[in-house]
Design a binder for these strands. Structure first.
Lengths: 118, 118
DNA sequence: CCAATGTATCGACGTCCGTAGATATGTCAA
DNA sequence: TTGACATATCTACGGACGTCGATACATTGG
């Protein structure tokens, strides 16, 4: 199944968002974007996927290798990957018949900033 | 409406959870707890509430002062506060007829740790 | 006590979400 | 070109979620 890991170079169109929640009051548009990103993390299967991607050698995992460890069907895994991708938390790159996924470090960092206290 | 801010001293029973997702693969129980916390942040109204609490003088806000800025009914605000409280992200303290809410810094810090990269 | 105020709970409604089977699309090997 | 494999999309279903009006509960002042 698993081919040698390949780098994923694309960066997402969903830009990093917002200063810390504790720094200034958030407006509705910012809240909408952030809520979608946090909601994407608000599912145990998707957290497991993020964990699998982040701990993988090269930070990249073939979609086919996410079905077994999550214990979900292939369509369900594909759905979760789309949710994460739409939120800008992961990117994908097709290599042959496979699609390799990786986390977007900048997006996770942006969320960490949002949660920062003073 | 707003009385002078009072310190909120209680810490939640929902303990901080887990090492970074990038450090080790997460198990199902941990994923469940974390997912509930991230899901609690996955709503624009709740993000606004967190922001209002975190930016307030003394870090404490009366529940009555969350209705107008969120633009939601009093029962809806109360519902969102319960979601945040059940997730361990905020604490509450009744003072007279009012209930004062505050964020739990340790919980937000724990989530920041979970999102940390290497 | 009783009335007023602040908060939480209940009940209901419409919508969104997680899930998987069936199927379409894309890619490669022969 | 054909068949096999990998992934995404479609469809449907059950349950969870956000919302608010009505109402119960809690607290204080008179």
């Amino acid at each position: 199944m698993s081919l040698p890991q390949l780098p994923v170079l694309e960066q997402p169109e969903v830009v990093a968002c917002c200063s810390p929640l504790a720094a200034s009051e958030i407006n509705d548009a910012q809240a909408e974007v952030l809520a979608r990103q946090f909601a994407a993390l608000g599912d145990p299967v998707r957290l497991r996927i993020i964990s699998l991607l982040a701990t993988a050698d090269g930070g990249t995992v073939c979609a086919c290798d996410l079905v077994e460890p999550t214990g979900r069907s292939q369509p369900t895994v594909s759905h979760h990957l789309k949710v994460l991708s739409d939120a800008g938390l992961v990117t994908s790159r097709r290599v042959g018949r496979n699609v390799w996924y990786a986390v977007v470090p900048a997006s996770l960092d942006a969320l960490r900033t949002v949660l920062q206290q003073h």
